[in-house]
Design a protein around this nucleic acid. Structure first.
Lengths: 223, 223
DNA sequence: CAAAATTAATCAAACGATTGATTAATGTAA
DNA sequence: TTACATTAATCAATCGTTTGATTAATTTTG
């Protein structure tokens, strides 16, 4: 059946995503992936051509929905620049929580040198997202809503990096925060609201001009 | 000679650090390390016992100097809490620039699950640094110098994460910043002063109470 | 001192295990 | 039958490690 075939491919991709993110591209063997997925090893090559093809398939399955979502936000006429940044922070936190395996896999691969075509693809696509966010920041600066000397590139690095650090070094950050950061429930109930509130407060105090700041009414983050 | 022996071991560690950080633990083969170092393959096992032993040797060579430096800063009576944070940002930026290969290697390994003893060692030692920094933040809060609702853990994640992101995804961040982030000269002349100024401004606006903020006199960062 | 004994350093070769990939055979459904 | 799906078996290549032999350096002994 066509349906079964799609389900099976999808199931392989689910397992591959998890194994790749746990062990890295080199550390994950095709045998362990196929074994954990309960399919014959040859099926990976049959479906995806190669190990790298499988990796790219995992990647491509995720990225398509991102850019559209972000563009819609950027083009919304009813929102102030800060509201857009705020919404972006929310969106990004949601994405990270729900796709933390993928995010880990992604940046693990990006940190390797010399895996030519693959790295270039990842870079190119992520760069599109970066540019969309920069548009929002630039809009805020041009409108006089944000400070003129805002360092747009490093603000971006801060948003991406803070989240990345927490997800990619879970052993350390779990110890820091006092709960298991990889546990679904903690991620949803504790981490998600906390990182949202924190990043908004942090960036608002940096981005928004003094006279534009309303009184801060942030919810106390969950300890 | 004893001297030559130490030099040779040190040279192997230098090369291993670079190869590990480029290719990851699994991606780096003992053959490529020994080949690039110009020594026989068996020497790695002769000196370091195993591939993992070599990795740990690279790691241990670096970490020893860190904690002392940080403790001295924390115990300095003459500095305000903000001055300490500011100095810490400077120290951290210096360290990152001068050890970016190592930093990359470190967080690559930390992002993998289930490499038991190794990961635990890394976590434990990094946690000591985290705690030293938290002491400084707590001091600032207790003294009334910083806001009471500062999220200490996420501030730490911001400092570490922003830098990490830039170093670990050099292809992306080089494209963002408009220059090669791995080039020594760019790192020293452009990136280092810029990240210092940025992080200080960002954190000052978040940490320090309004009435304690002096007028901002940051140097324009290098574009 | 010099000869002998011991230790350390280095090497080429090969080990068994595992890797990603391919094959040929078999099963299945239209 | 025909086309696709799935399997077990197998491939060459590469992995980390070990080996036995050889050379260089050091120590011990006479």
């Amino acid at each position: 059946m066509d349906k079964d075939k799609i389900d099976k491919k999808d199931h392989i991709l689910d397992v591959a995503e998890k194994v790749f993110s746990d062990q890295g591209f080199d550390g994950a063997s095709t045998r362990s992936i196929s074994g954990e997925a309960g399919v014959n090893m040859a099926m990976l090559n049959y479906y995806f051509g190669s190990k790298e093809g499988l990796f790219l398939a995992v990647f491509n399955r995720k990225i398509n929905s991102f850019k559209d979502l972000l563009q819609d936000l950027g083009n919304d006429e009813h929102l102030s620049a800060w509201d857009k940044v705020s919404t972006y922070i929310d969106m990004y936190a949601e994405r990270v929580v729900n796709n933390n395996c993928f995010q880990k896999m992604l940046y693990q691969e990006m940190s390797m040198n010399k895996r030519g075509e693959l790295s270039e693809n990842l870079t190119r696509i992520l760069m599109e997202n970066v540019n969309e966010f920069h548009k929002i920041l630039k809009e805020g600066i041009d409108k006089g809503e944000f400070n003129e000397d805002v360092d747009m590139e490093l603000v971006t690095a801060t948003i991406y990096g803070t989240k990345n650090f927490i997800i990619n070094a879970p052993q350390l950050t779990s110890m820091m925060l006092g709960y298991d950061i990889l546990d679904e429930k903690n991620l949803e109930e504790k981490f998600k609201p906390r990182i949202k509130a924190y990043q908004k407060k942090l960036l608002k105090s940096y981005l928004v001009k003094e006279n534009d700041k309303t009184q801060n009414t942030y919810p106390a983050y969950v300890k």
